[in-house]
Write a protein that binds this DNA or RNA. Structure first.
Lengths: 219, 219
DNA sequence: TTAAATTTTTAGATTTGTCTAAAATAATTT
DNA sequence: AAATTATTTTAGACAAATCTAAAAATTTAA
């Protein structure tokens, strides 16, 4: 289904809001997309006519099966682009959202498939949110701070909870980035420091405090 | 200046057409952007009011200084994305144009700067067209088939004039892609085959016929 | 259970980009 | 130079997405 940029934005917003409330109401959506209630009503009619929405006037609304599917496609594109912007272009986490809002509307299926492969089929975006797969399935991944991660298991770095330039320098020094593979080889009880292997580099030791800020999930 | 997608498409098209003719005329632009002459006139007025166009009714038109600058920005974005799609995502040359037409309208300056760095500041896109730099300057690069390239000089692969899958396999085998660095170490008079060094790989020998299809420019 | 307040929808206007059909201008031909 | 042809512009209409203001439905309160 071919959707306008505007329709896509509404669908994505409804999807987000209905995660929190059973039925979404007009005013809250209007506030969320920063427009008037009247505009929302107009769009609701349109989305209903496209059979993406369950909607009875005055009674609230919800995306139906088809609508959810569309939402997940858009979210997938958004999060893959965010991952790209951070992991490949080295942009900062707090700056990628706005750009991904634009990129997400480029809808070539082949593009997204190739991008996904290129990025190594990431499961989590730089904000720690899951990236739906091609079918719209969302992996149920528990993210753990690296110092709570199992020994001798491969993990993937999903996010980092400290965006200072000091942290960036450390990450850079160790060659750790979003999507890096990491494995704990040894844990020292004395101060909680960890011997780790990062991707294909030779093993090294990192401090407990550093590890606390690095989030990983099972590979 | 913030421009709509439509305005950007017109500007880009006028830029392209005025490379061939002194003054662009309404009908040819209409044919080029696949619309009516009336729509073109409407847009011309708009671009004139935005001071991007020299335009007198019934007399043809041209982008002015500011208009050309905008055009070059758009073209830069387009060609950088094409380069990305081919060199990083491994898409085929004939398929990237359409996607780049969409990506080019994402206008974050920081994005394009970072993308440019990430790609190694390429000078030529996968179709052999030059990529304007940040200032809008276009490098005057002569591209040469690899077998006509100087000995012991570093070249950058700009394009390949043969898009068969057989060619792709060869390129893949040798690790040659758009943007690869290449240097001729030795040329054998017997059959014109060349000993070359590709990026950081160890030297190897390629056939003259293969080299004829690989275009490079001075690094 | 009415009255008041809130929420949602409708009605009508606006902007952007497009269109068709007709009018105006320029170019070409006789 | 007048008539014909081609090109360009204007005039008016339309669709998408938005807005304001007013009406309708629902909810809350007295």
């Amino acid at each position: 289904m071919k959707l306008s940029e505007s329709e896509e934005n509404y669908i994505k917003s409804i999807y987000t809001l209905q995660a929190k409330t059973e039925k979404v109401n007009t005013n809250s959506l209007a506030a969320y997309v920063n427009t008037t209630a009247a505009s929302v009503t107009d769009m609701l009619k349109k989305l209903k006519s496209k059979k993406l929405l369950e909607y009875k006037r005055y009674y609230g609304f919800r995306l139906n099966e088809a609508g959810n599917k569309e939402a997940l496609k858009i979210i997938r594109r958004h999060r893959l682009w965010e991952f790209f912007l951070v992991s490949k272009l080295g942009m900062e986490w707090d700056k990628v959202h706005v750009i991904a809002e634009e990129l997400e509307h480029v809808s070539s299926i082949d593009l997204i498939k190739k991008l996904d492969q290129y990025l190594g089929q990431p499961k989590i975006d730089p904000h720690g949110d899951p990236i739906p797969d091609e079918k719209g399935d969302i992996a149920e991944l528990k993210q753990v701070a690296l110092n709570n991660f199992s020994l001798k298991k491969n993990g993937i770095v999903s996010s980092v909870s400290n965006q200072t330039s000091e942290m960036m320098k450390m990450l850079n020094h160790y060659g750790i980035g979003i999507g890096s593979q990491i494995r704990i080889l040894k844990s020292f009880d004395f101060d909680g420091s960890l011997q780790v292997k990062i991707s294909k580099q030779s093993a090294c030791v990192i401090s407990s405090g550093f590890a606390q800020n690095i989030f990983v999930y099972d590979d």
